[in-house]
């Protein structure tokens, strides 16, 4: 059994703010410790469920996707680390994996939870795939679904968990904190979160045959709502991407993996307009 574990930071127990999640934040060293330990707990649980190969992906963009401390992971785990990955947080997810787990994930932009965001909080308002609003959880699930990989587990705050349940009915979920606002939450103790993650991923992997991959209709229609028109201007310069109107751009792709790859490119190019907008 091959298991891919993507680990983001906003949905880690104890994390409520960018001062813990961003490299220049005063509590970044605490934040990455909390993140690393949940990643290690998930990897350990996967090995206990008899995984032969466990690939952990650092799925938090701060510090160029280099937040997890590799030296504190189980020795048999791989770590995907570093920046400019064509498939962003889920780089390296492909046919052959038997399960995907999303640890420390967060709700999409506007879906009230701790650090709710969709891809780039300074540039993106909403991403719709075949008309349905999707955040990181849905986007990862659709790429996994394209490769027939089920999402077995999603952990994060109550808002992330609800978002997962709405589209992934049989996926196991674990809530490690209840959001009070975008920057506040009531967290269970990090040690408890780790113990529960280790146990829950084991149960989820054992139940993976009962969890169907998330399938969406192809060709895939993607519509992006940006924060400023300048971002839609840039996005619509990416080959295949069309200006819809005002602050929206979109495209059609042959399948969910191709859709996600083009989405990463469009969002990356659109985000290069952030600096320009700060000058207003």
């Amino acid at each position: 059994m091959k298991v891919y574990i993507a680990v983001d930071m906003p949905g880690i127990s104890g994390i409520v703010d960018l001062s813990q999640g961003w490299v220049s934040g005063v509590d970044y060293s605490i934040g990455r410790q909390l993140m690393t330990k949940e990643a290690a707990a998930a990897a350990t649980g996967a090995f206990e469920a008899n995984a032969q190969e466990v690939v952990v992906s650092d799925a938090h963009e701060s510090n160029g996707y280099r937040n997890i401390l590799i030296e504190e992971l189980p020795e048999d785990a791989w770590l995907i680390s570093g920046d400019e990955r064509p498939m962003g947080p889920i780089e390296g997810l492909h046919e052959g994996f038997d399960a995907l787990a999303l640890i420390g994930y967060h709700a999409r932009h506007g879906n009230e939870g701790v650090l709710d965001s969709t891809m780039e909080p300074n540039a993106i308002f909403d991403i719709r795939v075949n008309g349905q609003s999707m955040g990181h959880i849905g986007l990862a699930a659709m790429v996994a679904g394209h490769f027939d990989i089920p999402v077995v587990l999603v952990t994060g705050d109550d808002s992330a968990v609800r978002e997962a349940q709405a589209i992934l009915p049989n996926t196991h979920v674990l809530c490690v904190k209840e959001s009070i606002g975008r920057h506040a939450a009531r967290s269970i103790h990090p040690q408890k979160a780790r113990d529960q993650i280790r146990q829950t991923i084991k149960e989820a992997l054992e139940a993976r045959d009962d969890i169907s991959p998330f399938k969406i209709k192809s060709p895939v229609n993607v519509a992006i709502t940006f924060k400023y028109t300048s971002m839609a201007d840039r996005a619509s310069q990416v080959p295949g991407v069309k200006r819809l109107e005002g602050i929206r751009a979109g495209f059609e792709a042959e399948n969910p993996a191709a859709a996600y790859r083009r989405l990463e490119t469009a969002v990356q190019y659109a985000s290069s307009a952030i600096a320009a907008n700060k000058l207003i």
């Binding site: 992971l73 020795e75 791989w78 995907i80 570093g82 990955r85 390296g92």
Partner: peptide, 14 residues
């Protein structure tokens, strides 16, 4: 290496 700035890494001990 995945590209110039990203890689799938073995654990340092291994």
């Amino acid at each position: 290496a995945i590209n110039r700035y990203a890689a799938k890494c073995l654990h340092p001990k291994r």
